[in-house]
Design a protein around this nucleic acid. Structure first.
Lengths: 306, 306
DNA sequence: GTCAGGTCCAGTGACCATTCATAGCCCTGA
DNA sequence: TCAGGGCTATGAATGGTCACTGGACCTGAC
């Protein structure tokens, strides 16, 4: 008959994921001191230590890990109950927090945001730019409700458990060249091997884009690209093409607006593709999230037709 | 991300079972005012009404019923987590609340209480005499941890869902007569039909005991007993036999200590039996409850041997 | 009318987060 | 090797908030 405080359980649950009190405090909007005291009260209630010192931080004890896991189940149950009640009322209202990479945000989330602001008054959509590595824990912990990520041919993302995973868009990568590049003439597909001497730009090492560019040049063009510049920002990549004479392979959604200084061409031969992937918690969505997901799906269909 | 207050959810859950705010207040140890306010806050959090007026009381709305059910799941989860943590520590400590009918309390619960008080220091066992009808909701809602009930041949108790149900003792009913009763002579089994003219005493109409006595007299003795006195208290029944010359059919555990004014005889022919039934919530017990159940089982085995 | 059940309101006490200060641990640089 | 600064967690004091109590009040049933 212990009516545990779900807030305190959430603290423990977040601590299991975020490792330090400070991170938990930041995530929940408290000071570290408050977190420390909440944990202390929880330990008093439980009657056994949940954390132990580990260097300058803390580590969960066995009991702590078990309770944190249980807490996750309880919190998910509470969320499910909230969703059920919300869909009972049917009203589309509340806040939905979305995270995603740049091009997805621009072409999917922002149009959806605009549309919903017009159509649904009680709905509030919050956007955050995040790397997938940061976004996944937030999604699992509930501080994000949906995440859009990407996935390149040959470099599948790990599929984390307890998350729903749906491909919502699939598009080719195209070549971006300076308009005065010798291979830009004509306008037809460009054989990749003709770009073996060029300077390339791609995303940072370790990303799907980077790996995909290298793999494509090797497989289709038969060479290792001189991948001299690395930026995860599409605008920076474009600027390097425009001003530094580099070449790039970019997904359609990341392409710049028509620009006389740039030429965009298909790759001759095998097309490389990337997919946009929608991640949500694997639980029935409330009406607010459902509305966002529906709008998102609609938007993705229109992108595919375009 | 609504961290609902489990206390408030418990209020709702209890209300679903107990129907009136006053009853909930009494059960949880608050004033009705507090309950009313907790519900009001909960409704504000949920954003839709959970109760509606019905006469001078309240009734749960659809949303209220749904949330109450969800609350039940959450509360059970919290209890399971507590049990898991407790068994992790392995310490047998805490409070176990038991309810049961008189004879079971006297011969099973009280000896167990004595034993555990000697053997287990941190354990506290609380006993309550309750009719089964009152005890079952308490058990389901968690204000009791175990209940011992009885069951007579031919009158099975309804088996409520979500409760574990185990027969822990099985015993015959025996005849109790005044020592100077003509049929008490000898000491062997007494044919029931010889008692057709006697005045009988049994438990109140509607109980298993009452029905069982009537059914036995009809089936074995071929008569409708003159069931003049009704008391659920075994001592009162015995006193009526001793002082008013009535006769009774009593389960062994309810029999009085040896008394020269009384004769105890077997019934000739088919033996009528009653069973003691142990009811617990259908969830893994913590170490404290486990210890009580073990002691109870041991005690029941010793009763059976005796 | 009277009673039972529920709600509203003001007052009070407990609890909880913040701030500020302290203590331990790790890394760095002399 | 040691001193120091940064990082992390904890403790004490304070102030605000929240929730329960007690009482007045309302409504519906008998």
């Amino acid at each position: 008959m212990v009516d545990w405080d779900l807030g305190r359980l959430r603290v423990l649950h977040e601590l299991a994921e975020r490792r330090t009190l400070g991170a938990v405090a930041a995530a929940l909007g408290y000071t570290p001191s408050a977190i420390s005291q909440q944990l202390a009260t929880l330990e008093r209630e439980v009657g056994q230590p949940l954390t132990e010192k580990a260097g300058r931080g803390v580590r969960l004890t066995e009991a702590g890990r078990i309770l944190a896991e249980r807490a996750g189940v309880l919190l998910a149950g509470a969320e499910a109950a909230a969703a059920e009640l919300a869909s009972l009322s049917g009203e589309v209202r509340g806040t939905v927090r979305a995270g995603g990479l740049q091009s997805a945000t621009r072409h999917l989330l922002i149009p959806v945001l605009e549309q919903l602001q017009r159509e649904q008054d009680g709905l509030r959509l919050e956007l955050t730019d995040l790397e997938l590595e940061q976004a996944l824990p937030e999604l699992r912990l509930g501080s994000l409700d949906l995440v859009i990520s990407d996935e390149y041919d040959g470099h599948p993302r790990p599929r984390p458990a307890a998350l729903r995973y749906e491909v919502i868009h699939d598009e080719p990568l195209r070549l971006v060249l300076p308009a005065d590049h010798p291979r830009a003439a004509g306008g037809g597909p460009v054989p990749l091997e003709l770009l073996r001497e060029d300077v390339w730009v791609a995303a940072a090492a370790g990303t799907g884009h980077h790996a995909s560019v290298v793999a494509t040049c090797r497989a289709v063009g038969g060479f290792d690209p001189d991948l001299r510049h690395r930026s995860n920002d599409a605008d920076v990549q474009v600027e390097l093409v425009r001003s530094a004479g580099a070449v790039a392979l970019m997904p359609v959604l990341a392409l710049p607006a028509a620009d006389p200084a740039l030429a965009v061409r298909d790759v001759a031969g095998a097309a490389v593709r990337r997919r946009l992937v929608l991640l949500t918690r694997d639980a029935p969505p409330g009406p607010a999230l459902a509305a966002v997901l529906a709008a998102l799906a609609e938007r993705a269909r229109r992108l595919a037709r375009a």
